Simulated assay, not measured.
Amino acid sequence: MDKYYSFGREASLPDGADKREDYRLSARATARLRVESAEPIEFGDESLEASVRTCEVRDLSASGMSLVTMEPLHAGSLLAAEIHLSAQKKSFRLMVEVVWSKKEEGSRHLNGVRVFDSDETDYLNWLEAVAEAFSGSE
């Protein structure tokens, strides 16, 4: 029933309108985002890898999620992400696009990202896992 799907639909979105196409689930999940170049940078004898940020997943659907970070993500950025759902034993490698970002209390930021189908990701497994989570939430 629709009355159980009010969570994850906040009235205070960046532009004031909810443009989500799917229901969202509140989730116990974490995301690891690669926020810089995937190519290692060489500094003398040292090799520095891309910067990885771990953040909280506030809610999710098959097509996107909202992430809580300590710094804003830039709209339009394409990021490699690894999402770990607490109910699953494995993580899902996905590509996400940052759609919006807004400042919350303190130094926290809420960011909306869209998941998209990309080669060499776990996109199909992600869709199955989210469908299974929705069927278990009834």
Rank of each mutant, 00 (worst) to 15 (best):
S91T: 07
V96T: 08
V113I: 12
F92I: 05
A133F: 07
S107P: 06
L67K: 09
R93H: 10
S61A: 07
K3P: 08
L85Q: 02
T121A: 06
H109M: 13
R93C: 09
T121M: 05
E71L: 10
E138S: 13
S6L: 15
V130Y: 02
Y5R: 05
A62G: 12
L124A: 13
V68H: 08
E21V: 04
S66I: 05
A29H: 00
S66C: 10
E132I: 01
D59G: 05
L78T: 11
D59S: 06
V115A: 09
S137I: 04
E49V: 03
G64Y: 05
G44M: 06
L85T: 00
R53S: 11
S137N: 05
P72R: 04
M95E: 02
V57W: 08
T30E: 13
E105Y: 15
S26N: 10
L13H: 01
R53G: 03
V57I: 11
S91P: 07
A80H: 11
P40G: 11
R28W: 02
S12A: 03
D22P: 00
S77T: 09
R24D: 04
E132D: 05
V115L: 11
E46K: 04
S101Y: 08
A31M: 01
G16V: 06
E105V: 07
Y4W: 02
A31C: 02
K103S: 13
S26F: 12
Q88P: 00
R114T: 14
H109R: 13
E36A: 01
A80Q: 15
K103Y: 09
K3L: 13
T121S: 10
D22L: 04
R24M: 07
F43N: 01
V130R: 02
A75Q: 08
K90W: 01
L73E: 01
V52Y: 02
E105R: 15
F92K: 01
A29V: 00
H74A: 08
Y123M: 10
D59A: 09
A131G: 07
S6V: 14
V130E: 02
R9A: 15
